[in-house]
Computed example of a mutant assay.
Amino acid sequence: MPPVVQKEPTGCGIAACAALAGLDYETVRTRAAALGIHASDRTLWSDTPHVRRLLRALEIDTDPNERPFTGWQDIPDRALLAIKWRLIDGVPFWHWVVFVREAGESVVLDSKAALKNNVRRDFGRMKPKWWIEIGPA
């Protein structure tokens, strides 16, 4: 699964959905806009309903629960991760990334445009707070 780079500073949720769907950012941004979902909406990265609704529209199933991060080995083969989790004025915010385990190799697809490589293997540097399991492809 190739990574998708976000085209907007706050478009990590849209880019994560695009990567999971195997689509480009613009296509998924257009689909999101038709659902009333925009990268500029702070709830896209401070709550899960928008991303879940967008994934559902892309025919991708998600587990209804967020699971606390306990270790990389505990994450299923496909999951959305909340990293860079923080509170701002009492409201949680995070950066969405995609965890993928294929053929015995685990990677994180990080949509941040400033990265030299959007396929990350530096697991010790990332500090996930929780994850959402993604259904079968």
Rank of each mutant, 00 (worst) to 15 (best):
D47E: 07
S40Q: 14
R53L: 12
R52M: 00
D41F: 12
V98G: 01
H95R: 04
A34C: 02
R78S: 05
W85T: 12
A113G: 06
I75H: 11
D110N: 13
Q73L: 12
A114V: 15
M126V: 08
A39E: 15
F93T: 08
T10Y: 14
E8G: 06
A57M: 13
K116G: 15
R42S: 07
F93K: 05
D89W: 15
R125C: 04
I75M: 06
K7W: 02
E66T: 12
L87Q: 12
H38Q: 05
G71P: 09
L44A: 01
L109S: 06
T30V: 14
P128Q: 10
A19Y: 04
I134N: 04
P68N: 11
W45E: 00
R53Q: 14
A32L: 00
F123V: 00
W94F: 09
E59W: 05
P2M: 12
E59F: 01
T30G: 00
R120L: 08
A32S: 13
R56G: 11
A79E: 04
R78D: 03
G71W: 02
H50G: 03
R31E: 10
R42G: 04
D89F: 10
T10M: 11
L55M: 10
V4I: 09
H38P: 02
A103N: 15
L81W: 12
L35S: 13
P2H: 13
G71T: 06
V97K: 04
Q73W: 11
L80I: 04
R42P: 06
V100K: 13
W96E: 01
A103C: 12
D47R: 13
A57S: 11
R29V: 09
P92M: 09
P64Q: 08
N117A: 15
S40M: 13
W45G: 04
E102L: 10
R121D: 00
R42Y: 06
E26N: 15
S106E: 03
A18W: 01
A32I: 00
F69C: 06
R101K: 14
V107A: 07
V51Q: 00
L109Y: 14
T27K: 10
Q73A: 15
A82P: 11
E8C: 12
R120T: 05
K127F: 07
A18R: 06
I37P: 01
G104K: 09
L115N: 09
I83W: 11
R53M: 10
A16N: 08
E66N: 02
K84R: 15
A113D: 14
P76A: 13
W72H: 09
A39I: 06
